[in-house]
Design a protein around this nucleic acid. Structure first.
Lengths: 247, 247
DNA sequence: TCCATAATGAGAGCGATGCTCTCGAACTAT
DNA sequence: ATAGTTCGAGAGCATCGCTCTCATTATGGA
């Protein structure tokens, strides 16, 4: 009958709804007290149920954290994509810049969520399989920009290659082999040199945000938000120049 | 009497010795189970005493972690200094490279200790005053290399400035003001442009090590240690070129 | 030398955590 | 209507950080 499937769906819906509320509550808790202070029992209390009931929906605290990790990756990726989408497609340098500013902006607004994904890995060492998709959204964005940079203006791509081999030497063979995994996700038109440059820009972006958010720029860069932002924009544009994205 | 001071010293020595053993035990625990798994009670058990006794020596778990943070900063700084000291003073590029490789090597060998200092800040947000000294050892090393680079060969320093203002533009005024804090620790001969470049190299170094250690290069850079190392050496030397340290 | 004082270690205990188990109640499906 | 599944609640276990109290011991001055 129809009622059968409907009933099943109703139950599933109720279950999904409660699961959603649990994760949502956990997310607000995370935003307030950070990952180390996140308590399954507190989440249960907030929802008016007993702690053991939560275990019907979430297998463990670590799994809850994994769900929050996925959410955070997705939110960060969405923020970066939104910022990037507001820039004209041809403005490759502007798109790169927008991604960087978007990432930093989101990180500053959601420090605990950012720390959860780009700080020390909290559970074990291996990230769960389910996180790799959302985790690569920012990277995918950068790859797309690189590819467009190659397509739109051969000029910039050419300049990149030149920048990389400043002394005339090509990319060392071990380096070429080292980037084999990422090459599986990059269009073949993008040369190895540009891939390396993109990886470095990506590395730098999160290195800078990490340093700023985790306090490693105390007594190094001035505190006022405007100055920090000015410095960030400068370092990012310098990095873009190295990458060869000069607009 | 002499016995007075001796006795006092004896007692202090006993106290210091036990404190040392506590921190030492905590450090090995940290190396095994990580910061989140570090338990004051477990440390006490290991030392054959009851947990409350440990509180006579260490005010709290967070304070214990602070001691470990200081130790880790010091160990990392020492490792970097040791690596750097083995390079001829005139070989500025080699010294920079040695610092980077030394940092990475230490980090790989002491992942949990590295995560403790360069991962998410675990207690609150503000680092204790006592940590800022040891925390700046690597930075001080880089500053020294920069200064020597300026002193030894004006050529490289000049190239840096040129590299920075590739389009002929000078450093933006807000950026100059942003780096005021670090300028208090850098010799005046080092131009602002070089300071910025050094900051970027510093940022990149730890960004790269973070990414590698925290698993963000899964499916990006190949796993074999030799390839990862080759990639690291390449990215670092690229960064050195940007910094203007070309040897 | 003796004795008040201070440091030390042990134990009990408090509140809290993650997680498991069991037991009724409610709901689903036949 | 009944058999089976899901669910919430409660009790409980081991562990944690930390505090308090109470002896024991060492210290340092009278």
């Amino acid at each position: 009958m129809a009622e059968e499937s409907v009933a099943r769906t109703v139950r599933r819906q109720a279950r999904d709804e409660l699961t959603r509320r649990i994760v949502e509550t956990a997310r607000t808790q995370l935003a307030m007290v950070g990952a180390s202070g996140l308590s399954l029992r507190a989440v249960a209390r907030e929802l008016g149920m007993v702690s053991s009931a939560v275990y019907r929906y979430v297998p463990s605290r670590d799994e809850l954290l994994t769900l929050l990790i996925i959410e955070a990756y997705d939110a960060l990726g969405a923020a970066a994509e939104r910022a990037e989408s507001r820039v004209a497609r041809e403005d490759v340098a502007g798109r790169f810049r927008a991604v960087c500013l978007g990432v930093r902006r989101w990180a500053i607004r959601h420090p605990h969520e950012y720390a959860l994904i780009y700080g020390s890995p909290v559970p074990g060492y291996a990230a769960p399989e389910a996180t790799i998709g959302p985790a690569s959204r920012v990277g995918a964005l950068l790859v797309g920009i690189m590819a467009d940079g190659v397509r739109h203006g051969k000029r910039s791509a050419g300049r990149v290659a030149a920048g990389l081999g400043e002394d005339g030497s090509a990319l060392p063979e071990p380096v070429r082999r080292a980037i084999a995994p990422i090459r599986a996700f990059t269009p073949p038109q993008v040369p190895d040199e540009l891939v390396v440059a993109g990886l470095m820009a990506w590395t730098y972006l999160f290195g800078a945000v990490n340093f700023e958010l985790f306090g490693h720029r105390h007594n190094v860069v001035a505190d006022p938000a405007a100055l920090r932002e000015a410095f960030f924009e400068h370092e990012i544009s310098r990095m873009a120049a190295l990458t060869g994205i000069t607009g």
